[in-house]
């Protein structure tokens, strides 16, 4: 069995978010929190700007009443190809995964300089100002996902594209001696999104759903001018759907 498995896996995971479909309902935010053991910080700290959100929906208002229109922009770690957060970390706690082509945050290596968070133009990173997860009362900690490290105080964290699910998917595919199927691996946000506005998959496969969506003429990336080469692609505006 082991011989049949292709050793070199070259997925390039990516995400497409269709802003025309996003209703801004925040289900993805909650799904992310529940999947990734993200602790809540309570009213005081949340109000103070310490809330830990691996993804958040930026709500901007445009126009004057009565044409006031909200625009909802889900923003999570953009998994930049040229990530500004990576080179500044003194201890290689945030590095680029050659394997998954995403940005990694190694919690146990992090010493908490918070440099990466400053350098992230998307503000995608959250810091554990206190031992938030440690304060989860029994038995509420029962639901914590065993596949995701529970972070302690003093470390940075951020969206991982649910790398634990990617690994589980790859592992399962490998055990069965096949490649990962399109749509087999979905992060919690894409799984929950009631509007199905989030598409996740392998960008290196031109036929995957995410690749097709990414080729749409409506696509753009956040702060494109910075040259960070994000792996999260947004679709907005008029145009035909799906390319």
């Amino acid at each position: 069995m082991a011989e049949q498995i292709k050793e070199q896996v070259n997925e390039r995971w990516g995400m497409v978010i269709d802003m025309n479909l996003c209703t801004g309902c925040n289900a993805c935010v909650t799904a992310c929190a529940m999947e990734n053991n993200i602790p809540w910080v309570g009213e005081d700290d949340a109000g103070y700007g310490r809330g830990i959100y691996w993804m958040r929906i930026q709500r901007y208002w445009e126009g004057e009443y009565p044409e006031t229109t909200p625009s909802y922009q889900p923003v999570m770690c953009q998994q930049c190809g040229h990530a500004p957060c990576e080179p500044v970390c003194p201890v290689f706690a945030t590095v680029h995964s050659e394997e998954e082509q995403i940005n990694l945050q190694v919690y146990n290596r992090c010493i908490g300089t918070r440099y990466c968070a400053n350098n992230c133009p998307y503000f995608a990173r959250s810091f554990n100002w206190f031992d938030y997860s440690y304060q989860i009362p029994e038995p509420l900690n029962y639901y914590l996902n065993p596949n995701v490290t529970v972070r302690r105080r003093g470390v940075m964290e951020k969206c991982t594209f649910c790398v634990q699910r990617i690994h589980a998917g790859q592992e399962q595919a490998k055990a069965q001696g096949r490649a990962v199927r399109d749509g087999e691996v979905v992060p919690a946000c894409a799984q929950a999104c009631p509007a199905d506005a989030i598409i996740f998959g392998d960008l290196s496969d031109p036929n995957s759903r995410v690749s097709q969506a990414a080729r749409s003429q409506r696509s753009y990336t956040l702060l494109e001018a910075l040259g960070t080469e994000p792996k999260v692609i947004y679709l907005k505006g008029e145009g035909t759907y799906g390319g």
Partner: peptide, 15 residues
């Protein structure tokens, strides 16, 4: 013993 949180730092003022 408590964490950096006792400082006034917060998103986005990490420093």
């Amino acid at each position: 013993f408590t964490g950096i949180g006792i400082s006034g730092e917060r998103r986005p003022n990490y420093w």
